[in-house]
């Protein structure tokens, strides 16, 4: 039992350093990648699921899948009166409506009196507003927060998902996506 152990192959000795190098490259990339913390819907490109929501407010009818298949692209806005950015995007939605875009709303976990106050304060650009107290439609289309806006084409297929509020600079993008959805 002497100590003249044979030298191990040099490759194995450098393995830890190589692994560390790989780790280093990975985390450097991770540190400097653009911040992407949103959960994107995997449902873009698929037809809307079947749903039929009751009206969330007295002024507008409820919302069902059949009513959204009109042969013309439209927007589906997932929002709530208790959501601060939803108020911030109201002017943009109004601007889109004035350009002739039809917008349907899904009110998430909302009470009628809160919703009425919200629509009174910030305007009501919606053609229909469905009441989604159990987040059924929200989960059904893969939305993970409010507000989110989906472009639905004439056949009821989801073509685009906009995460977070629509800012003034996003309006052109939304219009382009609606245009693309026409073809």
């Amino acid at each position: 039992m002497s100590e003249d152990t044979p030298k191990r192959s040099s490759l194995a000795i450098w393995l830890p350093l190589a692994l560390f190098g790989a780790f280093f490259v990975l985390v450097i990339w991770g540190l400097y990648r653009p911040a992407d913390r949103e959960v994107v819907s995997a449902f873009v490109g698929k037809p809307l699921p079947q749903f039929n929501l009751p009206a969330a407010t007295a002024e507008r009818p409820g919302l069902s899948t059949a009513e959204m298949i009109t042969g013309k692209p439209r927007l589906l806005n997932v929002f709530a009166s208790w959501c601060v950015p939803c108020a911030a995007e109201a002017p943009q939605l109004e601007a889109l409506r004035q350009r002739g875009v039809e917008i349907d709303g899904v009110a998430i976990r909302d009470r009628r009196e809160d919703l009425d106050r919200f629509l009174g304060n910030y305007g009501n650009p919606f053609a229909r507003i469905g009441k989604d107290d159990l987040s059924e439609v929200q989960v059904g289309i893969g939305s993970s927060g409010v507000p989110e806006t989906f472009v639905i084409d004439g056949k009821g297929v989801i073509r685009y998902q906009h995460l977070g509020e629509i800012r003034p600079e996003d309006v052109a993008l939304i219009l382009r996506k609606l245009q693309e959805a026409q073809s």
């Binding site: 100590e3 030298k7 191990r8 040099s10 000795i13 350093l17």
Partner: peptide
């Protein structure tokens, strides 16, 4: 470690 390990015998 890579430089020196080959000179360290396993004992």
């Amino acid at each position: 470690f890579g430089i020196r390990a080959s000179t360290v015998t396993e004992g």
